[in-house]
Design a protein around this nucleic acid. Structure first.
Length: 876
RNA sequence: GGGAAUUUAGCUCAGUUGGUUCAGAGCAUCUGUCUUACAAACAGAGGGUCACUGGUUCGAAUCCAGUAAUUCCCACCA
């Protein structure tokens, strides 16, 4: 059999993926089996695969594949998100490169461009996921702007509106005066900017000559001031309580209000309040019922409200106002001051906080079930430490601003009735017209009198329905798919979007279906580089996952990522991790080369063959048990390490080395069958982590029927492991290691068979496992002695002592000092144990089992000392 | 400013209800080996005051308090 020496993943990965798809191995339809369901966190439709996706989707695939092999009807639903902000920004940039400005396009034209973009680049990421081996049911692929999905989003909006949970309200938005549009928080870049802090005198009304000094970086906004605020407990200003101040230049009389928001340490401890132009001031304004004076136009010029300054550009106005204040002696001083200023990501214009009318969702009552569900454990967060973060957020939840001033997305289904100031909310234009006619009492109202709100919904207002609507739970409630797959099982996502997405899915799940959307939320870490920096395009520290897959194989990439990714902890990416994964795949491949070359002979199995197979069977059963436990706790990194050690250490280093026939001799046929079967057992446990190489080996290990795949399972069940066998072998393994070390230390080599002399209380064990010692530790005969033979070198294993003849190399003095050291250590140990046992408070207050343990330790130590002293005496 | 965490070997992390499977794993390092499955390997070895200081306890990596450093999220810096 010609099997290449190094595993070459590229030759087999595409082959098996295509074969799996052809066989429908990942297709899921409802049947009698229990369902296990994951809905993918939909990546941006125009996104490309990055390392974060690799980690996240590897974990999902591991979970799905494992359950599939366990006999569940595993369904992994893929799809993409329209990602309104990110995608629109990309399209705007793409158009700009072609010399097209969004503002020159109609909405329809822009959307046409957007859909073209989506058709060209959309779904690339899903094709890339196939390279990773993702076992999604591709026939279930969804997109958040698919026709039916969109209908669901709009229906839900309408329902919430009918339930009185949606309202319109004023809210601060980030206004880009150059693009003349609101931009999202994500599109605002905060930069430290050099400016000035101006100290300005505000006269106290009715007290000539008296004034209060406020500090501001934006003096021009004083035209919109409607209050001056001080801290209620600031002793410097108690005399101002209940008074009024006069806004300079504007001459407006405004109240002096008390608000704990004011930082007494900052500036003068006195704050001008401009509710129309500052986020915090807006909140203060709300608290105190202040008047709102908007002193700025869409273009960022001073509005009519600014009186004499009307028409000036905002920065011109600042200069002019400073000059005028100075002229009037109202500018006490100005000092250079560095502060953070928001700039538009698109135009680099300074962002203007501005009030605008937006749509809101009342969250208080709506989010209650989501809080309860996580508190009660109906929905689990893994790791659990995210619970307090989650709880805190939901307990202080704010109303959700649903509208975004964009075109790419689900347009808000509100229709304004021309000339009435009224509006209706309806799922489509026809029903809107009907509703509008009813509302206005005008049956002749024409469609042309209705104008739909130009804004679209926040992306999360569609993706919060994801686990429900991928099974048409909104549009076709009660359909068989929805009844079978929903609630889904697990969700795997990043903690960054715990609030944005996860919490809202739970909210939507309970509100629209009455049920939770999923049971477990596994939160992964963020992939960073080895200096803990986030991966980013700018830094160029993010490798292309497809290159890595091409270079090291998908299995290597998967294992490499998993090895270093405990739940919720960040993963520090290094290519060496992937190399470790690749090396592991290669190790497995070479085990296959070895076993694949073996022949079976028609004879009885030898003693060693039986010992080895029994032990490996027990070890496999033990590992299977361990893995089941780890999967149950979502300890994926531990699970991959457990199976890594099972394969490399137990199966390859111990088992195959034990059983490997010397000099090309055949094994017994029965043993060859046992080896093949055990190898299959290992492959089953490995398969979810490294699907490609395991499938290739499994298929080559023996003749398979066409269309039968490892990936489809089912995996075998293992009984309870034979623990006695494992314990016995553990002692023998320790002995082998100790003897090898001794030989290496003494320069005894490993080739010549040496007779072994042993002092032990368990001679049968040594007798029984002598073949193992012979094979792996180069032992010849076995002899039991009462004390250390002359000219020998010794090593202690637990309570036994092993000796090899050292001939000329024997060093009695060294043996003696080794023993003395050992005695000294054991005596110290015994003393500490006795210290506890002689302490009455220990004996009386410690649990009985602990005390019993200490007594056993004492007995062991005493026996050991006895043994050591005898050997010392024997040395002379 | 509000909240959540983290600190154990050179690196990344385990360490469940305080008590010999409590000081562990993988990688890296060092020393030997091309021993015919694998040098992407094999056989060995070294390496930690469990951040610091106090406290509780018969007993603390583990519980409590304080200190220091680091990270993340939210809100924001007049």
């Amino acid at each position: 059999m010609a099997i290449s020496k190094n595993y070459t993943p590229s030759e087999i990965e595409d082959k098996w993926y295509a074969a799996w798809i052809e066989a429908g191995a990942f297709r899921s339809v409802p049947d009698h089996r229990p369902a296990y369901t994951i809905t993918i966190p939909p990546p941006n439709v125009t996104g490309i695969l990055h390392m974060g996706h690799i980690l996240n989707n590897t974990i999902q695939d591991v979970l799905i594949r494992r359950k599939r092999m366990e006999g569940y009807n595993a369904c992994w639903v893929p799809g993409t998100d329209h990602a309104s902000i990110a995608t629109e920004a990309k399209v705007v940039r793409m158009l700009a490169e072609q010399g097209i400005r969004k503002s020159d396009l109609t909405r329809e034209e822009f959307l046409r461009h957007s859909f073209e973009w989506k058709e060209t680049y959309g779904g690339i990421i899903l094709r890339q996921l196939r390279k990773l081996g993702a076992s999604c049911d591709w026939e279930r692929t969804h997109f958040t702007m698919d026709e039916e999905y969109s209908r669901a989003v709009i229906e839900c909006f309408c329902e919430l509106y009918r339930q009185g949970l949606i309202y319109r309200g004023k809210r601060m938005v980030n206004w880009d005066p150059q693009a003349q549009t609101a931009v999202s928080d994500e599109e605002v870049i905060h930069r430290e900017t050099q400016g000035f802090l101006y100290h300005i005198r505000y006269a106290i009304e009715g007290a000539p000559g008296e004034y209060v000094v406020i500090a501001t970086t934006r003096p021009e906004t004083l035209l919109g001031d409607t209050a001056v605020a001080i801290h209620p407990e600031d002793p410097r200003y108690t005399h101002l309580h209940g008074r009024r101040a006069l806004v300079p230049l504007a001459g407006r009389s405004v109240p002096i209000i008390l608000d704990a928001y004011v930082d007494r340490e900052f500036g003068t401890g006195c704050l001008k309040v401009t509710p129309a132009h500052d986020m915090n001031d807006a909140e203060i304004g709300l608290r105190h019922g202040l008047e709102v004076v908007d002193m700025m136009t869409d273009e960022g010029r001073v509005s009519e409200a600014g009186g004499a300054y009307a028409g000036l550009d905002r920065f011109e106005a600042r200069k002019q106002i400073v000059r005028d204040l100075e002229a009037q002696g109202l500018l006490e001083r100005q000092e250079p001051y560095t502060h953070s200023v928001g700039y538009s990501e698109r135009t680099n214009a300074v962002i203007e906080p501005r009030r605008s009318l937006q749509w809101f969702l009342k969250m208080q009552d709506l989010s209650r079930p989501a809080l309860d569900a996580v508190n009660s454990g109906e929905v689990n967060l893994i790791p659990g430490r995210f619970l307090s973060t989650y709880r805190h957020w939901l307990e202080h939840v704010r109303d959700w601003c649903l509208s975004r001033q964009l075109w790419w997305g689900h347009r808000i289904p509100a229709y304004y009735i021309a000339g009435t100031g009224q509006y209706v909310v309806a799922p489509d234009a026809a029903s809107a017209l009907e509703a509008a006619r009813e509302l206005t009492g005008n049956p002749d109202l024409q469609a042309s009198s209705l104008e739909q709100d130009p804004d679209v919904l926040d992306t999360w207002a569609s993706s919060w329905l994801w686990p429900v609507q991928v099974f048409q739970g909104i549009t076709r409630p009660g359909n068989p798919d929805f009844s079978y797959y929903y609630p889904t099982s697990d969700l795997v996502t990043a903690p960054e979007i715990l609030f944005f997405w996860v919490a809202r899915m739970i909210i939507a799940g309970y509100h629209f279906t009455g049920k939770k959307p999923f049971t477990n939320v596994y939160l992964t870490g963020i992939v960073r580089d080895d200096q803990r920096r986030k991966m980013s395009k700018q830094l160029g520290n993010s490798p292309d996952p497809l290159d890595l897959i091409a270079k090291h194989g998908a299995d290597g990439v998967r294992v490499g990522m998993l090895l270093a990714s405990p739940a919720g902890n960040d993963l520090l990416y290094k290519e060496s991790l992937i190399e470790q994964g690749r090396n592991f795949a290669n190790k497995l491949w070479n085990a296959y080369r070895l076993v694949g070359g073996w022949q079976g002979a028609d004879r009885e199995p030898g003693e060693l063959e039986l010992l080895a197979a029994d032990w490996m069977r027990a070890r496999l059963a033990q590992a299977a048990q361990e893995l089941e436990d780890l999967f149950g706790k979502f300890r994926i990194a531990d699970a991959v390490m457990a199976v890594y050690k099972l394969t490399w250490d137990d199966f390859c280093s111990w088992f195959l080395e034990m059983i490997k026939p010397a000099g090309g001799q055949p094994l017994s046929a029965a043993t060859l069958e046992a080896v093949t079967s055990l190898f299959e057992g290992v492959l089953e446990l490995l398969h979810p982590f490294m699907p490609f190489v395991t499938e290739e080996i499994w298929q080559g290990l023996r003749e398979r029927e066409a269309g039968v795949f490892l990936t489809c399972g089912p995996m075998r069940t293992h009984g309870a492991p034979d623990t006695a066998c494992l314990e016995d072998m553990a002692l023998i393994q320790e002995t082998v290691t100790a003897l090898r070390a001794l030989r290496s230390e003494k320069g005894l080599g490993l080739k010549d068979a040496l007779p072994l002399s042993v002092i032990t209380e368990t001679p049968d064990l040594f007798r029984r496992y002598l073949p193992v010692l012979q094979k792996l530790a180069g032992i010849g005969g076995l002899e039991f002695v009462q004390s250390q033979p002359a000219r020998s070198a010794g090593v202690r294993v637990r309570t036994s002592e092993c000796f090899l003849p050292a001939g000329e190399l024997a060093d009695a003095e060294e043996e003696r000092s080794k023993l003395l050291k050992e005695i000294e250590y054991t005596e110290g140990f015994l003393r500490s144990v006795l210290g506890k046992l002689e302490n009455e408070r220990f004996v009386s207050s410690a649990p009985a089992q602990v005390v019993e343990n200490e007594r056993r330790k004492r007995a062991d130590a005493e026996a050991k000392l006895d043994l050591l002293r005898r050997s010392l005496a024997a040395l002379g």
